[in-house]
Design a protein around this nucleic acid. Structure first.
Lengths: 205, 205
DNA sequence: CGCCTTCTGGACCCCCTGGTCCATTCGGGC
DNA sequence: GCCCGAATGGACCAGGGGGTCCAGAAGGCG
């Protein structure tokens, strides 16, 4: 899923230690971005937060800030989906849908305004086309999983046959996305909850 | 609605010419932000685009970039709602709802990826707390208008009595917000359309 | 053990950007 | 026409930020 090294320019061979350092930088940068925002975070901040030096940073990310941004985007995108498992991949009963809904709400309640998805959609995506692509792919995968769930339920007869999986899935994803966005701006969870509840209720018919 | 001069520090008295220049700067900056993004746009860019000098910029916005950002945020927030009129303020029949839906979709189709709301929610809001407040207030007003429409329809009996205006309005707003957000990242309008269509269909019951 | 590559530290550079200053022009009221 | 505050031009400054370099430590492998 991560596919490291495909887009980013060839990095030198990494030993175990090197890989660990690289990972530490990405994770630390991600945390820093979440906490202070992408624009406000400087490379020196990241060095300080991860106990590394600039030379290490450029050793692992020869293309500099942009490449690091991309790596962090991928890291955060992975996390967004992982955080919804195992529910998201198994939406085959109403109980599973409810559990998924609760997991999403709980996750966003606890992380509040500092969340991977928020960082992706607000800042990272606008920084570089490469990161935008990462976000686009994330959304695609996400919607696919929701749509799969709708199809499964429809085959069971639990969802009416006239419900369009693609369209309804798209609407639900948009609701979540918007709910998170509003959470980022107001600190209130109500819209995310409303979007999920209304969206799933609509599926129930 | 604009309430100029309340939050921003006192600007010197403005003549007609002064007011025009100030407005030109705000509008030009807004356009620049939409086109190139907030982070990528420098004060010099804005000067160039608006045919002004830095001294003018700081003459009208003594607090510098931050104050300008705030003014632009207000400017863009106003535009978001204005763009949906006269439909948004008169959601009292299904025809009105449909017209509103079409207006929103048309607006976002034409402006594509360079839209006021997008700029607000992605970059402006994160730049300064003052701008965040502007966005929060925008969302509040927006939802209020949607909720008013739902209430009106319910009183007519066109919408079932068990529909919660607040919750359903929140979900609809979240859908739009998310639809626009996804539009910004993928260039596709499908999610915005889906959110509106599914949301309004849910109201129809 | 010895060698070569990877890894790390930290000093250094340069440009860009927000912000300042002052001198000049403009323009409206009397 | 005079005068004073508003409006404008443009040179200038300081700091911070991304990015470079080289020397030395560390660590795998024959």
């Amino acid at each position: 899923m991560c596919d490291p090294g495909s887009v980013q320019s060839r990095t030198p061979k990494l030993t175990a230690k090197g890989r660990a350092t690289r990972e530490r930088i990405v994770a630390g940068a991600a945390a820093e971005f979440r906490a202070r925002g992408v624009v406000a975070t400087t490379l020196d901040d990241i060095c300080r937060a991860t106990a590394t030096s600039k030379s290490q940073l450029f050793h692992y990310f020869p293309d500099g800030r942009e490449q690091l941004l991309h790596a962090v985007a991928q890291h955060e995108a992975d996390r967004v989906l992982l955080d919804q498992e195992p529910f998201l991949s198994d939406l085959t009963s109403w109980a599973a849908w409810d559990a998924w809904r609760d997991a999403v709400v709980a996750r966003y309640r606890e992380q509040g305004t500092s969340c991977p998805l928020g960082v992706l959609t607000t800042s990272l995506t606008r920084s570089t086309p490469a990161s935008q692509e990462v976000t686009a792919r994330l959304l695609e995968q996400w919607q696919r999983k929701i749509t799969d769930g709708i199809v499964a339920m429809r085959e069971q007869g639990a969802i009416a046959a006239d419900v369009e999986p693609e369209q309804t899935g798209a609407a639900l994803l948009a609701g979540i996305q918007g709910g998170v966005s509003i959470l980022m701006q107001t600190g209130r969870l109500t819209h995310l909850e409303a979007a999920l509840d209304v969206g799933i209720a609509a599926l129930r018919g």
